[in-house]
Amino acid sequence: MYAQMIKTAGTGVKPREEMTPEEAAFQDKIDADIKIEPKDWMPDDYRATLIRQIGQHAHSEIVGQLPEGNWITRAPTLERKAILLAKVQDEAGHGLYLYCAAETLGVSRDELTEDLLSGRMKYSSIFNYPTLNWADIGAVGWLVDGAAIMNQVPLQRTSYGPYSRAMIRICKEESFHQRQGYDIMMKMAQGTEAQKKMAQDALNRFWYPSLMMFGPSDKESVHSAQSMAWKIKIDSNDELRQRFVDQTVPQAEYLGLSIPDDKLKWNEERGHYDFSEPDWTEFFNVLKGKGPCNTERMNDRKRAWEEGAWVRDGLMAHARKRAARKVAAE
């Protein structure tokens, strides 16, 4: 999940008797699956929560380019390099679709970027882990994109029109990402002993951080209940995590790799796998900025933003000059 620990604005779900007529009409539309569009009336808390959620999602797409970009120049073949380039380019596009969706709520892209760089807004914890070898690129596509898809598929039905449309577009492209990751894993798992070891090592390191992507359990949270009533959150974190584990375990078995969890076991009664929770202390530390790569990621983003300033300004100055010249000629 690319949006974690989003603080829902407000105080939880209001009973219908306490809603203003506007709020009741708004909730009726959502209950009837009528999309909310940018110029429609919406509660301030709905708008604020969506900006946080879509903004964090957009930032994750952009920061998510960094761990993979790390391997573009070192991809093992020209074909793998072209594929990885295409994937990283897709992530930039996904960031753009999402920033545009957030902008329809009345915040500018530059404001969102500045909020990321100042630390006011976050991105997904997963991108604070390093990609140490080529198998990590396989694990990222297979597990990280796989977990993202789990979250994004239901969000295609979210109540906010521009967000839903961005999700539909992203989901279409995302399945290429997961398959290219699994393809790398297959190659490595069927390769030499050393390659197999690398694949297993990548799975060992990315398994729990991938489970953390869904965030801690939120079944008791009043904030979650409000986001669900607004249909900007569709499933609980635990439901998504379970779905991810159930889907991924057989895929790991096919690869001949083992999930690094002694407690992992099929539970006949539940019809699901039982599994160990990730270390939530580690998760909160990563969110606080103490993950292995937080500083590196933020420094890279800051440098790109600052060193790109003269290009952004220059192109804008050029556009203004040309527009003025055109007016003068008319």
Binding site: L96, Y97, C100, E103, R109, R165, A166, R169, R312, L315, M316, H318, A319, R322, A323
Partner: peptide, 10 residues
């Protein structure tokens, strides 16, 4: 969809 650009050509 939409995007940001300095001018029409870009």
């Amino acid at each position: 969809g939409s995007l940001h650009a300095p001018d029409a050509e870009m």
